[in-house]
Design a protein around this nucleic acid. Sequence first.
DNA 1: CATTAGCACTCTCGGGCAGAGAGTGCTAAC
DNA 2: GTTAGCACTCTCTGCCCGAGAGTGCTAATG
Lengths: 339, 339
Amino acid sequence: MVAILDERKRQVLFAIVHDYIQTAEPVGSRTIARRYELGVSPATIRNEMSDLEDMGYLAQPHTSAGRIPSDKGYRLYVDSIRNIPALTAAEVELIKRHLGSKLRGQEFILEAAARLLSSLTNYTSIVLGPATAAARLHALQIVPLDLSRAVVMVITDGGLVVNEVVELPDSLTHHDLAVLCEMTNRACTGRTLSELRNLDLSTVLGAFNEGISAFESAMDQLIGSLQRKESEHLVLGGATNILNQPDFRDMQKLRNVLKVLEEEALVFKLVTSAAASPASVNIGSENPLEELRECSIITATYSLGGPGIGHISVLGPTRMEYGRVMSLLRFVSQIISEK
Amino acid sequence: MVAILDERKRQVLFAIVHDYIQTAEPVGSRTIARRYELGVSPATIRNEMSDLEDMGYLAQPHTSAGRIPSDKGYRLYVDSIRNIPALTAAEVELIKRHLGSKLRGQEFILEAAARLLSSLTNYTSIVLGPATAAARLHALQIVPLDLSRAVVMVITDGGLVVNEVVELPDSLTHHDLAVLCEMTNRACTGRTLSELRNLDLSTVLGAFNEGISAFESAMDQLIGSLQRKESEHLVLGGATNILNQPDFRDMQKLRNVLKVLEEEALVFKLVTSAAASPASVNIGSENPLEELRECSIITATYSLGGPGIGHISVLGPTRMEYGRVMSLLRFVSQIISEK
DNA sequence: CATTAGCACTCTCGGGCAGAGAGTGCTAAC
DNA sequence: GTTAGCACTCTCTGCCCGAGAGTGCTAATG
């Protein structure tokens, strides 16, 4: 970190990263000298490579194999990407067609985006619906099922509906419920979910029936499940794409990654924490899950009408086409946000 | 099929199936003679095995390897299982604890069942919510979002909620919508979804506003999405368990199976068609998807209060512990149905 | 003094080979 | 009909060897 790399070292490093990303094979000095016009001999490059390894930018699978970039090497490479590469006209056209006009409903858009990204990149894509905490309640409805259960439905201004079955205290009558529904509705409509979470129900309902404070627990249930729901708006695309990546020929590595992808809660944590970090790229060991220390994840955000932002990300091996994925993500999230 | 196997051939076949299920290795004549008390020499068993192979019950990976059961062999084995093995007390206790009393909501029960089955069997479990076609509408609510969109929510008597955003014709006013909602609600409540599908809306709404027949298309949308939703109530458990099965050490086979599991629509088709066949066990090539010709799927049904039945199944290699899985499935579906 | 040619060295990978092990199929004896 | 014996086949493992790729070092060079 302290010493900035001189120009030629950078060139060598980037050549190695570039080559390794394409071939997935450790790259040697001769290859660099041949394929990239650096104007120096392999021997010189060897010296530079040796230095770069000492500095921690490269690693060597074994003596007498070529070098591969370390996480630190990738990091420098990614940080140096100033102008992310332009998409081809074909890609732009494809994206526009698939995310085009007449997609109804948030679900469909997100699913389409996930499918699209995974097929374009051959990596796994993860799309997270807009965080609901900032969304405003459009309406809250309580529909009784029978005397002991009711369905509570919340509609946000973004058109998202979440619902939950709640247990009711035995003591409620039908009429109680109707009034209750009316009052709750009036109290909640227009507020954000996070406001709702802090709302003291007794002040709202106190005037009506001070006796049935037990109802509060039912509302607590709903609020709890709203928090849960927040993490559930998750769409995976191309989870099996890692099978195509030579990096995961090893069954043990494969298992690690697939196991994570199977757990919604983990994926959720992964994406949100990746997005929380200032950079939108998390490389290998930078990311919070030990199991994904051979993966990188690139994240972009979008907003879909409402105030909450959503996340859209691509998960692949550290040997990832960073530039291209960044361009794609940027463009796709832009298209989505335009709706 | 024409000739029934004589007793000793059956014993040999079943011994091979049994051994192969446990070891995943081709089993030879010596092994059978040693491990199973048939009272005959390896040579005799070899003769029987040769016959069984001619009849199509066994196959040989290569000359001079042991035999493995063919699909036909498994089929005979499964059909011969009269008394499925009893569960251990520990298993019974475990299942009861995990599916015990206080699970609220269909979602939770189904998820718990899926998780439980996959961890008990080390295979993949698939749980399908009760078919909604037979469920009765408890309530239908239309909540306008803005002038061009509304959320239509349907609550079944089972407590299941499905909702959909529909586009509205421009010509509707707020007041129209309110009346419309009221009328639709009255017309639909108490009917089954399949009745609803055939309902002629014009007879219901005709009296009110003959002009806005365009509304029919909106309702068509909802009904279409209801059909879609039907297939969406799908919970997978332990999809990565196949990684642990030696049968799928080969990356190509793995890819086939995982690819299917990734596609909800395919999985849905798989389970429903498997359940449609009279036997609850589909072995290898018996099942409808080419990609799963090395898998078997065992299915049971349950009912959850309402009239619709749900499916619960386990997908594993053809080399599956049929008896045990059948017992587990039977017990779990029974426990679920008791709710 | 940075660069480079030359060279010895190391490590992997693939092919070839031999021996062990497992299993079969056949034949002849019981 | 059953079985012992035996030759045969096939896989798997370990081993060796040579080819290939790549490095690191040294000494020469501009």
